Amino acid sequence: MKSAFFILLLLISQTTFAQNTDSITLVKAKWQKQKIAPKTKLITHHFNQKNLFAANQYISYIEIKRKGNAPVFAFGNEIKEKKTTSTFGKELHAFAAINGTFFDVANGGSVDFIKMDGVIIKQNVLDKNGNRARHQKAAIVIDQGKLSLKKWDNSPNWENSLTEKDVMLSGPLLTFNLQNEQLDTTSFTKARHPRTAVGIKPGGNIILLTVDGRQENAAGMSLYELTSLMRWLGCTSSINLDGGGSTTLWVSSYAENGVVNFPSDNKKWDHEGERKVANVILLKKKQ
């Protein structure tokens, strides 16, 4: 019995040590920073020595300060047609965009609730037992161009009662008001994949983030690892969006095609592998 207890203590101490090492690695990294708009920076780094979560990782994110002439947020959505994140951004006159929530890959259209300009475009697609998915238990809401996160209150029609004109359900929530959310133990949670996330910092700064994966140069992250990453970047609330081949961060002024990260849908380490998606989160300059 004593030996089992000591083994448990050893495992806990090893995990804690690894997390501390990873957090220090993240903080001390020489991140590339570029101003792309007022109050807005693009920040990237390639951990290429297998030195973050014992793996190669490529992380890209935009940080937006919530003050003054900061840009405004908006959604882009198509009911049936699918478009690349960069196409959404260009057509809707944004200067930056990330892919949004989960969608029907075969037929197009979101599988989660979306409301734009006060009009409900899509209700949740529930399972055969009428239960909502984990990614239908939180919402990204936009009110007069300002973005925030909401948590499901367990009522059946919660999303329909939200007063904001622009609502997009996604998830799972990773952290909410400083508290880590309980994650399930499915392979979706535990396995490493490309990930897309939104985070909110204490002063109101917003982070739009992608983590690349399914590549030798970038392993991707589990949702546990993504939770830690968002906490280490200073987020007190954060949410997971659609990931995998959909994961894309686009900035109009960036390089050739504007794609900052290395989308995995073409299985190549380049900026050409965007998957067509049904919806996005946009950044537009304040008028």
Rank of each mutant, 00 (worst) to 15 (best):
M1P: 11
I12L: 15
Q19T: 07
S23A: 15
L26V: 08
A29L: 01
K35T: 15
A37G: 03
T40S: 04
K41C: 09
I43E: 05
N48I: 04
K50A: 11
L52S: 07
Y58F: 15
I59G: 07
N69G: 03
F73A: 00
F73M: 00
G76L: 03
E78H: 12
S86Y: 05
S86D: 08
E91Y: 02
A94K: 00
F95T: 00
I98P: 02
F102L: 10
D104A: 10
A106D: 14
N107R: 13
G108L: 07
V111A: 02
F113C: 07
I114T: 00
M116E: 13
D117S: 13
I120H: 02
Q123W: 06
N124C: 08
H135F: 15
Q136Y: 10
V141F: 00
I142V: 01
L147H: 00
N154Q: 14
L162H: 06
L162M: 12
E164V: 04
E164K: 04
L173C: 10
L173H: 06
F188D: 14
P194L: 10
T196F: 10
V198L: 12
G199F: 02
K201V: 05
D212H: 10
A219N: 15
T227M: 11
L229T: 06
G234P: 02
G234E: 02
S237D: 06
I239Q: 03
L241H: 10
G244H: 03
S246V: 04
L249Y: 01
L249W: 03
S252M: 09
S253Q: 08
N261A: 09
N261E: 12
D265S: 15
N266F: 07
K268M: 13
K276F: 05
L283A: 00
K284V: 01
